[in-house]
Design a protein around this nucleic acid. Structure first.
Lengths: 204, 204, 204, 204
DNA sequence: TCGTAACCGAGACGGTACGTCTGGTCTTTTT
DNA sequence: AAAAAGACCAGACGTACCGTCTCGGTTACGA
């Protein structure tokens, strides 16, 4: 986990507790600076200054720039990934992927996401956190769509939902990170069609 | 391109030309250090020292760590991506993807590739170079496999080869960068099968 | 003044105060290196290394090599300039000038003084500091000898003590800096005699 | 001497002779830059660029910045030091010192002279050249005034002309280099008076 | 209710690496 | 073979941040 814990939850504590105000100020400053200059040019020094906080108060809570940025980023991103229910798999996947594309393409979140993934590549300490707190919940949410289709009986029960996720979001992340081709609606449609076709889906 | 040019190709040159020896020493030192400590902990300072070269001689050629690392990495990686010809599409894709997986999973190249992609996310100046010199040639080589299958008539002529590439390599890069699931042969097989199925390939 | 101030004198202080240990280590290292290799070959890098201190800790206190060297030099030099009281002007001037000559001719201080004056010629920012902290106190000390003679009534009341100082020490600095003739006791004697003669001094 | 010799004078020469044009361009550029930014901020790099000449062509002729600057400075300065003949010593010394003061106070030459003397303090290799080519001729010229007075019989035959020079010019250089008091005509007058008085000069 | 442990903002600490600059030398090509 | 150009190695420059430590002061528990 990025931070220690919700204060008061773990038990024994002496002395003055961590101030929630300080924490909020840090996260707010981080979010601002993240949008303004990107993760690469974010510095703890500046976060502390902007938040009106000592650097130690930042390091007391987050061990690195990545973990801090991650916390500031997380909730924002997740809230933009809906769990659609259109009645059939193609529709659900289309809606989910479209929401993803809009988020990363049309908001500063895309840039931050790219920077964060970049950071994860260089800091092994971030890998676990990133997977646990970001990849796992997002994938779970998306996989639910596939599982629902299995339950409905419109796709075979043995469908490898991990593979489906990797084909869909792998392709999408690929275009986000490599930028070799546009992330547009045309791409989303043909991608979802191809993936649905590969499952051997029965038309409802 | 990362550096100026092929020496001597552009024409006018006065004064002492850039020494090829110096350049070779820098690239060699960079490759060594890249393998030893990864891109994140590679420093120009150390490259220069190891190469027995002044820092200015490095900056004269490459404007940043990323461009330098990229040049040292490029040829090494590309040489490990064969152009298989097994006679059918599935076999070709399997061979190509297996080679890729072996390279990134079993050699230090995988770590460097991850670091380099991370670097590309933070340095906009690298994006173009990366795409032009890395993504484009590698994709072209892989796409040739699909085009050959179209020529053979085993898959429909309108097949979107870009999409095929994105599903295959998007998924593979996804696992490389996110590490949520292993990059093993089982994954390669089911991925190729699913992608081939999605194309509506005719069995030969 | 080279540095901020006597710590704690100015009032408001926030954050960790400058460590006196660090400052002492820097001054000590500077003094050593000044004697070893002269001001011209003194580098902040080496001062920091020798003092076991970060470069920033040096720059935090002194804005330039010259100001640092000056601070390290100052007390050492001044302590070697006595305020003689032999009873008559000639004896006082002889004693003072002999002490000066011995200091600059027989110790490494002479070399440092030359280097420092050289530095002052090239860095306008040093001029004021040099004058205020070096020339003014030293001259004041020496002029006191002349003023005492006036008080005694052995020389005319209107004597221009600045001119006397300039003839005496001007000539001495001239030989120190230009090296055209030796700085020996013979020189000191005839110089003092000539200057005393020029004043129209009454023999006591 | 700063440079080798008058080109072509020494005899044996093979290959292309040193170009007088090149030399003139370098000296001209040096003089300009000396006046513009002072010796301290003069760089061989910039001299070469301004002269439209390779750096090596500069180093071929002058071994260091100081020697080059010195050559560019020398003739200019000496031409401004007249050999007055007013008929009596006081008048001669007054005229000579006034010319000196005007030169160093009212032209960029003063700044350059200060810089040059500063440079001499740091570069032992310059000392000899400086003394030989600058101090010695200038002092000789000035001392001639005193010697003439001896010949005239207006001052004692045993007069120490070196001491007279040191009192006069020592005081003047002192004010130039230390800047503690102004270099004005009032100073010149009282200085000359005091020095002449110290000699025990007979009124003519 | 009081001691004390852990917090607070501020900023100095020892460091690393940056990208730039200069010095003096070396190596091409041109004249 | 010298000139002009400019790359060569070396390393100091001053800056930016790093993550830690110290300062004097302030909470808010728990003994």
């Amino acid at each position: 986990m990025a931070r220690g814990d919700i204060p008061g939850a773990t038990g024994a504590k002496k002395g003055r507790p961590l101030s929630e105000k300080t924490e909020a100020a840090i996260l707010e400053a981080t979010a601002q600076l993240l949008a303004e200059k990107g993760l690469a040019h974010l510095t703890i020094e500046e976060v502390a200054a902007r938040a009106g906080v000592g650097k130690a108060s930042v390091y007391r809570r987050w061990p690195s720039k990545g973990t801090l940025a991650f916390d500031a980023f997380e909730s924002d991103f997740l809230s933009r990934q809906p769990l659609p229910n259109t009645g059939d798999l193609r529709g659900d996947l289309l809606a989910a992927l479209r929401a993803w594309v809009r988020t990363v393409r049309d908001t500063p979140i895309g840039r931050t996401l790219r920077g964060l993934i970049g950071e994860v590549q260089r800091d092994p300490a971030l890998e676990g956190i990133w997977r646990e707190r970001f990849m796992t919940p997002v994938r779970a949410r998306h996989r639910a769509l596939v599982d629902r289709a299995v339950a409905r009986g419109t796709i075979p029960p043995g469908t490898d939902s991990d593979l489906v996720m990797d084909m869909l979001y792998g392709a999408a992340y690929h275009r986000l990170l490599q930028g070799h081709l546009p992330l547009n609606d045309q791409f989303v449609r043909v991608l979802v069609d191809a993936v649905v076709a590969s499952i051997g889906a029965v038309e409802p």
